[in-house]
């Protein structure tokens, strides 16, 4: 992968996205924005992949990134809210890791400004990977010679095994988890037969109704803003609010302590959304068609009819995959001993 120098260009591409003007449907770029201080290299991506799949950096040795962001499926865990160590469940639904690199900020509430920053969060969340500290986690990495060698190769220096470098490696790997080439992308590049008639109707309605106001092509996430693009959800009142407890979570307000941020969330990508059930920050809505209706009611203030709902669901299906071929990594071993402490 080529990383250096791509970042700026892609950010410009993301900003000049269609903006609700249907004549400019854009296909997903092959490479997401890459920060200047963490260029992509093959060795770094391979290291990040190993760390992503390695459960030994959770307190119980049972939870890896992949546990909740399952790359064998839609990049999440199909659960209402994720389950971490000791069967503990967190408050929010796991967002997909596929195409997360196209988000300018991470987590539902945008509290991480980069994938690098995000990667450090779940490791020490008590209901996720449950480590007491990042130092404790990185100390485990240092006990594995195969990792130490790779960190030195990738980052250089004797003290290459650091929390920041581990986060950089994971983020570099995550920047390869992109799915350009979906039916929609082929359509956007001019192959009109890539979408069937119902999907094309859905795309048109998706735009006309104003969904593209927040879910912008090509990633169908919010526009790339350095500080994040946050929207109140639910915005309009509807019966769904109590039915699905949509206002129980204070959203971004918990991060900023600013009441103006109450119930504000980052706009998630709709790439692979068909594989992302259940839906929303609390995973309370079980099906995609119901999620579409909830969005129409709560964000656009309209009751969407069955035909439009079906058309939009069909269109959203055209945002699925294709997923890159991937093999499971061989994790560096500690022959003869386990670095996971006894229960």
């Amino acid at each position: 992968m080529q990383g250096i120098g791509q970042s700026g260009l892609l950010i410009v591409a993301a900003l000049t996205a269609p903006a609700g003007l249907a004549e400019e449907w854009l296909a997903l770029p092959d490479i997401p924005p890459v920060p200047a201080d963490n260029p992509q290299t093959n060795a770094k991506i391979e290291l990040g992949k190993q760390l992503f799949f390695d459960p030994r950096f959770s307190s119980t040795g049972t939870v890896s990134c992949n546990s909740c962001h399952n790359l064998m499926a839609g990049g999440e865990d199909s659960r209402t809210t994720s389950m971490g160590v000791h069967g503990l469940a967190g408050p929010r639904n796991a967002p997909t890791v596929w195409n997360s690199a196209f988000h300018s900020v991470q987590f539902w509430d945008g509290r991480a400004g980069s994938l690098e920053e995000q990667a450090k969060g779940p490791v020490i969340a008590q209901v996720e990977m449950g480590m007491r500290s990042l130092d404790e986690a990185i100390a485990r990495v240092r006990q594995i010679p195969g990792y130490v060698e790779q960190f030195r190769n990738v980052f250089g220096g004797e003290n290459a095994v650091t929390v920041d470098n581990a986060a950089k490696a994971v983020a570099a790997f995550e920047r390869t988890l992109v799915t350009p080439g979906s039916a929609y992308d082929r359509f956007a590049k001019g192959d009109e037969s890539a979408l069937n008639a119902q999907q094309q109707r859905g795309l048109k309605r998706f735009n006309e109704l104003g969904c593209t106001g927040c879910h912008r092509p090509p990633a169908f996430s919010g526009p790339w803003l350095a500080g994040g693009f946050f929207v109140t959800f639910p915005f309009h009142d509807s019966p769904h609010v109590t039915q699905y407890k949509l206002r129980d979570d204070s959203g971004r307000e918990a991060v900023t302590k600013d009441p103006a941020d109450r119930h504000k969330y980052r706009v998630p990508t709709l790439r692979n959304v068909a594989l992302g059930a259940p839906y929303f920050h609390n995973g309370a809505v079980p099906t995609l068609s119901e999620a579409v209706q909830v969005m129409a009611a709560s964000q656009l203030g309209i009751k969407l009819n069955e035909a439009d709902t079906a058309d939009i669901v069909a269109f959203l299906g055209a945002l699925t995959g294709p997923f890159p071929a991937m093999s499971l990594p061989r994790l560096p071993a500690t022959p003869g001993v386990s670095i996971v402490p006894a229960n």
Partner: peptide, 19 residues
Amino acid sequence: PENWQDPQVCAGCHPRQYK
């Protein structure tokens, strides 16, 4: 400069005004 929003951001919900 980043204290001001790009017009493309506004365009999402205000396409008519943007146009």
